[in-house]
Amino acid sequence: MHIDLTGKTAIVTGSTRGIGYAIAEGLARTGASVVLTGRKQEQVDRALAQLRASVPAAQVRGVAADLGTAQGVAALKAAEPHADILVNNVGIFNPQPFAEIPDEEWTRFFEINVMSGVRASRAYLPGMQEKDWGRIVFISSESALNIPADMIHYGFTKTSNLAISRGLAKSLAGTGITVNAVLPGPTLSEGVQQMVAPGGDHASALAAANAFVREHRSSSILQRVATPDEVANMVVYVCSQQASATTGAALRVDGGTVDTIA
């Protein structure tokens, strides 16, 4: 299958590293014009340089904005008025006992993990409707279904992503715009690497992450963490012309961790 997104503009939120960066690189390889986003300009500049070195022919640019705020999304829209493809990837996680999570942390997780995607989708949807073509993808998580006891506030935001993506897809019935959610399982992004092996090298982080999967996600069929590229491959397909009949779906890239067949 050859995926060609030449002429399409793709915005990937939270894309200076990890899964978001891998998605941006994957889309750049298809010929799409890709917009990276991050909170700090230096992070955006570093990611742009890395992507241009990896994909010399890439058409890429970046926007520094805090998308956990309405003002940040407005700044993104002002800098990049149009998108054919929107990947709502920006998100945070942090293990914390339920009784110790204050109201402010619940609100922070909701604003970043949920409202960033709501606001960005609302901003770019009218342009997609004018063309009767578009792709909106929410990066959820297997934690939307397997709510982690030590990150309940994170799990609840990822379940919210599923509700929003399904409802938005239904609201666009009969159009050329698809809306889907992608659910990664344990993935060795930079954030996970720091969580499982603070200060360690990649090899030690990989070993620790794989041990975590076997101990805490024993239902995993893969029995290892995924790579960001493996998640990105699914997202790139969902954004493609070939995925025109896939909408309202929750597509799992969880290594079989969620123990259901539906």
Rank of each mutant, 00 (worst) to 15 (best):
T178R: 14
W133G: 12
P198G: 07
A78G: 10
G174D: 12
A149P: 00
Q194G: 15
P148N: 13
N180E: 07
I101F: 00
Q193R: 15
I147P: 01
M128T: 06
S121Y: 04
T159S: 15
G191C: 04
E104A: 15
L145I: 15
F98Q: 02
W106N: 05
I147N: 01
G185N: 12
R135I: 07
S116Y: 10
A207C: 00
I101Q: 03
A211M: 02
A78I: 07
N146K: 12
F110W: 14
P81I: 11
R135H: 02
T157M: 03
F110T: 10
I92D: 07
P97T: 08
S165P: 05
S160T: 14
A207Q: 13
H153E: 08
P186D: 04
D103V: 10
S160R: 01
S204I: 09
L172I: 08
K170H: 10
S141T: 00
H153T: 03
Y124R: 10
V179T: 06
T175G: 13
I136E: 14
H153C: 03
Q129W: 06
G127F: 06
R119E: 03
P95Y: 03
P184T: 13
T187R: 10
V118E: 07
V182D: 13
N146T: 03
T107Q: 14
Y154G: 04
A208R: 04
R108I: 00
A208C: 05
A207D: 11
I152L: 15
R108S: 05
S116H: 08
V196Q: 05
Q194W: 02
I139E: 08
A208G: 06
A78Y: 00
V114H: 02
A208W: 08
Q129C: 11
P97Y: 10
G185P: 10
F93W: 13
G199H: 14
A203R: 14
I101M: 06
M195A: 15
V90Y: 02
F138A: 12
S189E: 04
S160L: 05
P198R: 09
